[in-house]
Design a binder for these strands. Structure first.
Length: 803
DNA sequence: GAGCACTGC
């Protein structure tokens, strides 16, 4: 036995050196062996485990042998600090690396980890916020390690998996890593995790931060490296129990910042007309020695269009303007138009852009930035449960990010169209997305993973209690949780679907209404950016702009059918591309639509429900949609174009909708967004009768005017049904006895029995009524009032006898 | 009469 004890002891150490993903099962087996050996000895089991552990250690060794020799390019700022970073990572579980653009941290840190022998017992996973970025980082890493992509470096993004368990490094989007938590609770496939661009603070990053903090104690051998912009580093360090921070300088050129007051020359007045400041800044730039292009940050498409017209009129026509041209850039612009900014031109360029150019796209040759100081930002109103998309003043961090875009090429200049005092008064950071979003899907995921109360979860920025309550309310609306906040069967199914819970609920309802086929198509397109493009010059006159429908959803079904037909009948990809362009449809998004559709179809089949072949009617499709959108219904008001929605909100149909001109009485919308007004976008007519059966868990009824009805021989009341305060049934007659038997009985006795207001008189009553008649006659003849008993005495008499 | 930017089992 002592021999067995020794073997156990050394086995325990060896388990610690095995592949991370094996350790959990090894430790479990080990513990049962340990107790078995105490009783009578299970030497066979011990041998088995020993050989399994040996194999696992061998494969870790084999992985280690595949780690390439790494070197760090001299010209990157991060290379000079490679040894320091290596030391910090070796000594700490979590390290924060702060650095500006151009420091080389994204590509060099994975190599530093490999140098430390990481990637052997598990993979190194490296997350990026965007799919394009994940792919390009993987490509660069493969290049720098002199390997083929897919060999030691792999990547995985939605719809595209070029990874395998053989990879030492796997580059993914942060969403993929979150998805993996559902099957790998402690992320045991990895021995190191790099969260890159953490300062972007998207919903995924914030969730991962909380999640990683909670699994740290259970994964003592796990290494986590977080990279971010300098200003956020301290906050992140605090979150991870004062993790060390190392600062790496960037490789940007200096950028001069000029404020509004420095635009005018001596004695000049600031222009008052809209966008006057921009044209003034453009004049200053044309006087400047520089020759680079100009990037103008504006809040949105509308402002871009307006400014485009102004610049053409006031600047391009002038003598200095003839050497310039204007380009526009926003996400919904066609790829062809977007790509113009990467092309070459013999003219200097003014690029009018939204926030796409702040993080997602890097535009070449920019030397000047003009910053309007504004951006459209999405917020969520917990009170009205609608989204808001309004122009806001950007934070200092965002303004600095914008300015930095001028210094990638050479010494740059940034004109801020506001004063220094204005800048100083601004908030330090943009509110992270988690404080601006509906939390329903975050809470659903937390419930599914049993992460406990969101209020206790280690978020970097804890959402306000109101936001958490709101998230639970939506989940309750969808039937995903029960009254005691436990996940229901519906909730479990929703958690498994890679879509918003509302959209998931529609898919489940599609089964119930037998219209899976259509709902899966719609669920996919509603989870992606609209495939319809907006071209700056072209008028939107495609076949899919016809506005004769009762439903915007059906327009999507028409596009789908068109695309499927095109896809089935057309061989060449370029021909498909041309057809898409002709109809102002995004080729790429249509393909993603197909991909997501087939993905969702698979998920649904795995859950065991059939996807129908035959087309379904509009009524069932819209009832299924409605099931997920119960809070988004509305009833047309007298006031033109206005709808009353749930929770006492008023909204209007978006002018881009098919229903804009002729909306009908009742509508449901996919989203309610407050811009200049509160608009319902993607709308359909519905029948009022559909609502109540789908919302039975949410409706409230009030009853009024209970009266005895002689015709119906029953006590009848008026019922009013409301859904979140919106009247969906104004006055319906109901049999009152079932709802309030006591009161109904009283009314019955008073009206029917005492007063005899009945159609068929039973004999006792006939007798009573005849007697009353006789007594009344006696009273009037004898001028006495006391022969006939009072009605109330009669009532009391009956009250005691009627069951 | 009109829409910031991303992402996923």
């Amino acid at each position: 036995m002592t021999n067995a004890k020794k073997r156990l002891h050394s086995l325990k150490q060896q388990i610690g050196e095995s592949l991370c993903k094996d350790q959990w099962s090894f430790y479990r087996t080990f513990r049962s062996l340990e107790s078995a050996l105490k009783r009578n000895g299970d030497l066979e089991g011990l041998e088995q485990l020993e050989s399994k552990v040996k194999l696992s250690i061998e494969s870790a060794g084999a992985r280690a042998a595949r780690i390439p020799a790494v070197s760090f390019p001299d010209d990157l700022p991060v290379s000079a600090l490679a040894d320091d970073i290596e030391g910090l990572i070796a000594a700490n579980q979590v390290v924060i690396i702060s650095g500006e653009t151009g420091s080389g941290k994204t590509t060099q840190i994975p190599k530093i980890l490999m140098k430390l022998g990481r990637g052997s017992r598990g993979q190194i996973v490296h997350t990026q916020p965007r799919r394009i970025a994940a792919r390009s980082v993987a490509n660069r890493l493969a290049q720098e390690t002199g390997t083929e992509l897919g060999d030691i470096i792999g990547y995985q993004v939605r719809f595209n998996d070029r990874s395998s368990s053989e990879n030492l490094i796997k580059v993914v989007t942060d969403g993929i890593l979150i998805a993996e938590t559902q099957t790998d609770r402690f992320l045991s496939a990895y021995d190191s995790i790099i969260i890159d661009e953490a300062h972007e603070r998207n919903l995924n990053i914030d969730f991962l931060f909380g999640y990683l903090k909670s699994i740290l104690p259970k994964r003592p051998e796990l290494k986590i490296v977080i990279t971010s912009a300098t200003i956020d580093a301290e906050k992140f360090s605090k979150h991870f129990n004062d993790a060390p921070v190392i600062k790496v300088s960037g490789r940007l050129y200096p950028v001069d910042i000029l404020y509004e007051d420095s635009l005018t020359k001596e004695g000049e007045q600031l222009p008052v007309e809209e966008y006057g400041l921009v044209t003034l800044a453009l004049r200053r730039i044309s006087e400047h020695r520089g020759s680079g292009d100009v990037l103008v940050f504006l809040p949105g498409e509308r402002e871009i269009r307006q400014l485009d017209a102004v610049i053409r009129k006031d600047f391009l026509r002038g003598s200095v303007g003839k050497d310039w041209e204007i380009l526009t850039l926003f996400s919904r612009l066609s790829v062809r138009e977007q790509n113009k900014v990467f092309g070459s031109s013999h003219k200097r360029r003014i690029i009018l852009s939204t926030n796409v150019a702040e993080t997602s796209l890097t535009i070449p040759r920019i030397q000047f930035v003009i910053d309007s100081g504004e951006a459209r930002l999405k917020r969520y109103s917990y009170r009205n449960k609608v989204e808001m998309l309004q122009v806001e003043r950007i934070s200092k961090a965002a303004a600095d990010q914008r300015a930095g875009r001028a210094g990638r090429l050479m010494h740059g200049v940034c004109f801020r169209l506001y004063t220094l005092e204005d800048f100083q008064k601004r908030s330090e950071f943009t509110d992270p997305e988690i404080l601006r979003s509906s939390l329903a899907s975050v809470i659903l995921r937390m419930q599914y993973l049993r992460l406990g109360d969101p209020q206790e979860f280690p978020f970097v920025d804890l959402p306000i209690p109101r936001a958490i309550v709101d998230g639970y309310q939506l989940l309750e609306e969808l039937g995903a949780i029960s009254g005691d906040k436990k996940l229901t069967k519906v909730g479990m199914e929703l958690a498994k679907m890679p879509v918003d819970p509302r959209v998931g609920r529609m898919i489940l309802a599609g089964r119930q209404f037998g219209c899976n086929r259509e709902i899966l198509i719609l669920a996919a397109v509603m989870s992606l950016p609209d495939p319809r493009e907006r071209d700056f010059s072209a008028q939107m006159q495609g076949v899919f702009e016809r506005k004769d429908e009762h439903s915007d959803f059906l327009v999507f079904l028409r596009i789908w059918i068109w695309f499927q037909k095109l896809f089935d009948t057309t061989r060449s990809k370029s021909e498909i591309r041309r057809a898409c362009e002709k109809h102002h449809l995004s080729f790429l998004r249509l393909f993603e639509w197909r991909d997501l559709h087939s993905h969702l179809s698979q998920v649904v089949r795995d859950m065991g429900f059939k996807v129908g072949e035959a087309p379904s009617g509009a009524a069932s499709i819209h009832q299924a949609l409605l099931t997920g959108l119960l809070g988004n219904i509305g009833y047309r008001q007298e006031e033109r174009g206005t709808f009353r929605g749930t929770r006492d909100i008023k909204f209007q149909i978006h002018p881009g909708s098919s229903l804009y001109k002729n909306p009908g009485k009742w509508v449901v919308s996919f989203e309610l967004v407050e811009t200049t007004k509160l608009y319902a976008r993607t709308v359909a007519r519905i029948e009022r009768d559909w609502i109540e059966p789908l919302a039975s868990h949410l409706t409230r009824s009030t009853f009024s005017d209970p009266l005895w009805s002689r015709e119906q021989g029953n006590v009848i009341a008026k019922e009013q049904v409301t859904l979140y305060g919106l009247i969906i049934v104004p006055a319906r007659s109901v049999i009152y006895g079932k709802l309030n038997p006591r009161e109904a009985r009283q009314i019955f006795i008073q009206s029917a029995l005492v007063r005899g207001d009945v159609r068929h008189c039973p004999p006792f009553m006939k007798h009573n009524l005849e007697l009353i008649q006789v007594l009344e006659n006696m009273e009037s003849r004898s001028r006495r009032q006391d022969i006939l008993v009072d009605e109330s005495i009669n009532y009391s008499f009956l009250e005691e006898r009627v069951p």
